[in-house]
Amino acid sequence: MGGGDAGDATSKTRVVVVGGGVAGAILARSMQFLADVVLIDPKEYFEIPWAELRSMVEPAFSDRSLVKHTDYLTNARVITSSAVNITENQVLTADGNSVSFDYLVIATGHAYSTPTSKQERLEQFQQDNQKIKSSQSVLIVGGGPSGVELAGEIAVDYPDKKVTIVHKGSRVLEFIGHKASKKTLDWLISKKVEVLLEQSVDLDSISEGDGVYTTSTGQKISADCHFVCVGKPLGSSWLQDSALRDCLNENRRLMVDEYLRVKGRSNIFAIGDITDIPEIKQGFLAERHATVVIKNLKLLMKGTKENKLAKYKAASPMAIVSLGRKEGVAQLPFATIIGCLPGLIKSKDLFVGKTRKTLGLVSST
């Protein structure tokens, strides 16, 4: 593991990256030979988030979508722990490290409770897969992108299984337009997925033992197992008592300027889902955030003036949601399409090959 401790890298600018998701991983990799890079992440691996649901129906897929941080960070230090606080010039971690920084990039996105080791995560996918295989009926709680993609994966790979989605909203995929929602609902129904809208399931009272779930309207659903696909909390709670507490908005997102610097800070950036940029929170946009901040760090390290920094423009609403292996629904700035074309773009490989390439890994097919 390169990088060494603080003592031997004094001449190099230190860039500390908190969060090893899409944005953090790409940024740390790009900067590792230009600065003394330290990545702080509670997991020892990077997970390609949009491959998660495919890995549940095809566990073999997960081996390429989970990458140990040390595989792509050959010249950086990785601290496998959670960041718990920030002072003016240090990040404190749960395992007692305090890491000083010249530049800090916060990329903690959403808080996932996934295992620390890659091996345990692979085993988790195996267990999920067993759960799906051994069940005749599956209940999915939540009709956002994760719930819809999981339902699509199961409906296509196991057409004989009964899949039910319970969603508290008035339509599936509320984060995109009505037209895309409607087309997706029609597709799900055509695959015999039952979709119950404007209902919820009390997650605290669920037990899989009896196989009967009651919704908020009193409807009973029998299912052999269930998966919870509701929104994950933002990864910002650790900042609430930190030096950046005043930089969080009312939704607990970090407020950033046009250069993606945290408001009022000249050497702290935020990228990915944690930012208050008014756009759909998605992986490919997190990559774009990372690209802008990589440019800006390089410029600042050279002493470039502020007005020469790269600016980030919020993206127009665009999204592709996979529907099984071959189809998908895409909301593009000019049209909403469903079927094989969006499927070709995303569903076959779920951008895993492309993401591995971005991280400099030769894609093993």
Results as ranks from 00 to 15, higher is better:
37 V>Q: 01
308 K>V: 11
40 I>Y: 06
208 E>L: 11
96 G>Y: 12
310 A>I: 03
151 A>D: 09
342 P>K: 02
82 S>D: 09
350 L>N: 06
174 E>I: 12
238 W>Q: 05
335 A>K: 15
214 T>Y: 04
118 K>P: 03
273 D>I: 01
68 K>C: 09
220 K>M: 09
138 V>G: 02
190 S>G: 13
95 D>I: 01
150 L>A: 07
52 E>T: 14
234 L>A: 11
311 K>G: 11
213 Y>L: 04
77 R>H: 08
143 G>F: 02
311 K>I: 10
81 S>D: 05
80 T>L: 01
80 T>K: 08
67 V>N: 01
95 D>W: 04
33 F>D: 15
44 E>P: 01
54 R>L: 05
61 F>W: 14
39 L>W: 05
205 S>Q: 12
320 I>Y: 00
215 T>N: 08
98 S>Y: 03
196 L>T: 04
133 K>G: 02
48 I>Q: 13
18 V>Q: 03
272 G>L: 00
84 V>R: 09
164 T>E: 09
278 P>M: 07
302 K>E: 15
66 L>W: 00
170 S>R: 11
139 L>Q: 04
192 K>C: 02
42 P>T: 00
70 T>C: 11
121 R>T: 04
127 Q>W: 11
284 F>P: 04
284 F>T: 02
295 K>V: 03
73 L>F: 11
166 V>P: 05
30 S>D: 14
162 K>C: 05
220 K>V: 10
34 L>T: 10
125 F>R: 08
174 E>V: 14
258 E>P: 11
131 K>P: 01
328 G>E: 00
243 A>N: 14
172 V>L: 14
324 G>H: 04
15 V>N: 11
146 S>N: 12
126 Q>Y: 12
54 R>S: 04
298 K>M: 10
240 Q>Y: 10
18 V>Y: 00
329 V>A: 01
224 D>Q: 09
54 R>T: 05
324 G>N: 02
234 L>H: 07
203 L>D: 08
89 N>M: 03
343 G>W: 00
61 F>C: 08
161 K>H: 13
183 K>Q: 13
136 Q>L: 12
253 R>E: 11
29 R>G: 03
309 L>N: 13
146 S>R: 11
264 G>M: 11
192 K>D: 15
285 L>F: 10
277 I>C: 14
24 G>P: 05
145 P>N: 02
160 D>N: 15
322 S>K: 14
164 T>D: 08
84 V>C: 13
91 V>W: 03
172 V>S: 01
226 H>I: 07
265 R>I: 05
69 H>N: 02
248 L>R: 12
113 S>Q: 13
34 L>F: 11
10 T>I: 12
114 T>S: 13
269 F>D: 08
167 H>D: 06
310 A>F: 06
205 S>R: 13
166 V>S: 06
33 F>K: 15
306 E>A: 15
50 W>F: 15
12 K>N: 03
316 S>L: 13
327 E>V: 00
169 G>R: 02
350 L>F: 05
30 S>E: 15
129 N>A: 10
9 A>W: 02
260 L>N: 09
83 A>V: 04
138 V>C: 03
206 I>Y: 05
356 R>E: 08
196 L>A: 06
38 V>F: 07
64 R>N: 12
68 K>L: 14
283 G>C: 05
